[in-house]
Simulated assay, not measured.
Amino acid sequence: MRTDRAPTAVYVQSNERDGNQVVVFRTSPNGALSDPGPIAVGGGGDGVPHLASQGCTTLTGDGRALLVTNAGSDDVSLVAVDGAAPRAMGTTSCGSAPKSATEHDGLVYVLNTGDPSVCGMRLTAGGLEPISGSTRALAAGSDPAQVGFSPDGSALVVTERSANAIVSYPVGSDGLLGEPLKRSSSGQTPYGFAFTDDGTLLVVEAFGAAKGKAATSSYATEGGDVTPVSASIGNGRSEICWAVVSDDNRYLYTTNFADSGISRYAIGDDGSLTLDDPAAGVGIEGHTGLRDEDLTSDGRFLYALDADSRQVFGWSVGAGGALSAIGSWGQLPATAAGLAAT
Rank of each mutant, 00 (worst) to 15 (best):
R310S: 12
A341T: 13
P130G: 09
A139L: 12
G90C: 05
G330F: 00
G224N: 12
K99D: 11
V41I: 15
G148P: 03
D82H: 07
T113P: 00
V244Q: 09
D225W: 04
T255Y: 02
G153P: 02
A215W: 00
F193E: 03
V48Q: 13
S150Y: 01
G114W: 00
G148H: 06
T196Q: 07
T113N: 01
N164L: 01
G43Q: 10
P190W: 06
V118W: 03
L128C: 07
G133K: 04
E179K: 14
K213C: 06
D74T: 01
I166M: 04
V48S: 12
L128H: 05
L59T: 12
T57V: 15
G133M: 02
T102M: 03
V23A: 04
K213R: 13
E103L: 08
T57F: 09
E160G: 00
S134R: 01
G208N: 15
T91V: 15
G31W: 00
T335N: 05
S260H: 08
Q146R: 03
L290W: 05
P278G: 08
G47A: 10
A279N: 13
P170T: 01
G320D: 10
L51T: 07
Q13E: 15
S217V: 10
P130T: 05
I131V: 05
S168H: 06
G199S: 04
G224I: 03
S132P: 10
V76A: 03
A165R: 13
D105F: 02
G44L: 11
P29T: 07
A319D: 15
A145I: 11
S186I: 03
G234K: 07
E205C: 00
D259S: 05
T113G: 09
N30H: 06
I262M: 09
D82V: 04
A32S: 13
I326V: 14
